[in-house]
Each structure stands twice: as structure tokens, then as C-alpha cells.
């Protein structure tokens, strides 16, 4: 009997592994999603800073794909390298001493150019969609004393089976859709792949235990 109980506990843990402490809409899931600037090399005289609504600003390493917080918008700022005071930045936005007012004042600096594009995470896919990761490629159209213009150029979708595809942005306000989508509606997929076999197994375990006791 003990081994059936252990089996039931293990299965329950597997089935409820997707429980998330965040407010994740039911039937959706988080995926890896990040941004990359395709032509950052053309602007090597600049430092790029990512300012997010609900977290500390961070200096962007343009060789890496950078993620934005799932609960808000982010904006990229640019500042000429010779005008950027790294010590001041690190001090102001230290993990322990950082405060929101400092941030507001810092981004009022005239030498900091803010881009015209607000960055958000890619919309959460359905829990059974085969999408694993998105990389959104940004392109700097203009960066000078007066303006800083960025456009979302294309998006790279990577699927659970390891394949990937690239789609261009037709409009800045509309996310391109991945070609591969789940065959089944998410609620049926949960019923089919989790609830139905789990219920069947629980009933069978009940029968095994009953038969053994008898």
C-alpha cells in the first residue's frame, strides 16, 4: 500500500509542477523571451541603459539578449560613453541603496536620450503551445543629439522540438504569430494529458489496494 501512496504523491507532484506564485492567467505559461539589438555595433560610442517600470535600471551588454520584466514596460536610454559616469550609475542603482526618486532624477538628465519604443514581454502563449523561446530583434533607426528611434524588426520563434522560424514585424503594434500552434485547446489538452490519465490511475490504485486488502 505504501508504494501506491508514494506513486500517487510523485504523480501529483509531477502534475502540479506548473503551479506558479505569480498571477499567471489560467491556461497560459511563461516562456523565455528577450530582445537583441541587431545594429548595436554601429553605435559603439554609446552606452545603452534599460529602464524598467518596476525594477532597477541596468546597463545593457549588447552582445547578450536582454529580458524585460514580465510585469511592465521598459525603455532603452542611450548616453554617449564620454558623458556616462559609471561610478555614479552603480552607486545610484545599487541593489541595496537604490530608491525610486533617484531614478526619476537620473533619467531627467539631458544627455540621456530615451527611445520612442516601449518594450514588453512577448504575449504569454497557451499552456500547451509548442513555443519555447522568442528573441525580438530591434533595429536602431536613428540615434543622435535630438532623437533616438528604435523599431522592432523581426522575431525569432524557437519551438519545443528545437526548430525555429523568423518573422518580420509588419506593424510595431502587432506581434507576429508563430506558425506552430497547439493542436488542441489548452483546457482539453489539460484534461486529456493530465486529468484523465491521473483519474484513471487513482481509480486503478484504489482497486489494487481494495483487492490486496480483500
Amino acid at each position: 500500500m505504501k508504494k501506491y501512496l508514494i506513486l500517487a504523491i510523485i504523480l501529483s507532484l509531477i502534475l502540479i509542477q506548473n503551479v506558479n506564485a505569480d498571477i499567471l492567467p489560467y491556461g497560459r505559461r511563461y516562456i523565455e523571451s528577450c530582445y537583441q539589438i541587431s545594429n548595436a555595433d554601429n553605435f559603439q560610442e554609446y552606452i545603452f541603459i534599460l529602464d524598467e517600470q518596476i525594477s532597477r535600471p541596468k546597463k545593457l551588454d549588447l552582445n547578450d539578449c536582454f529580458a524585460v520584466n514580465k510585469n511592465g514596460e521598459a525603455t532603452i536610454f542611450a548616453i554617449k560613453k564620454d558623458l556616462f559616469d559609471e561610478n555614479e550609475f552603480n552607486e545610484k542603482f545599487d541593489k541595496y541603496t537604490y530608491n525610486y526618486e533617484d531614478k526619476i532624477n537620473y533619467f531627467k538628465k539631458p544627455e540621456l536620450k530615451n527611445s520612442d519604443l516601449n518594450l514588453r514581454i512577448y504575449p504569454l502563449p497557451k499552456s500547451n503551445d509548442p513555443l519555447r523561446k522568442t528573441v525580438i530583434i530591434l533595429n536602431i533607426k536613428e540615434l543622435n543629439e535630438n532623437s533616438f528611434t528604435i523599431r522592432k524588426e523581426k522575431i525569432l520563434f524557437t519551438y519545443e522540438d528545437g526548430t525555429s522560424e523568423e518573422k518580420n514585424f509588419i506593424s510595431q503594434d502587432i506581434w507576429p504569430e508563430p506558425s506552430k500552434k497547439a493542436l488542441l485547446p489548452w483546457w482539453f489538452a489539460e484534461f486529456w494529458f493530465a486529468i484523465l490519465p491521473f483519474l484513471a490511475l487513482i481509480i486503478m490504485i484504489g482497486i489494487f489496494i481494495y483487492k490486496r486488502k480483500r
Binding site: W192, F193, L196, P197, A200, I203
Partner: peptide, 18 residues
């Protein structure tokens, strides 16, 4: 038969598809 197939068929489908 209902119990066995309700357990095995969905898992087999998942295994085959994913």
C-alpha cells in the same frame, strides 16, 4: 478497459507527439 485506455492512450499520444 475504460480505466486502462483512459490512462494509456492520452500518455501514449503525448509520448508520440512530444
Amino acid at each position: 478497459s475504460i480505466l486502462i485506455n483512459s490512462f494509456s492512450l492520452p500518455l501514449a499520444t503525448y509520448f508520440y507527439q512530444n
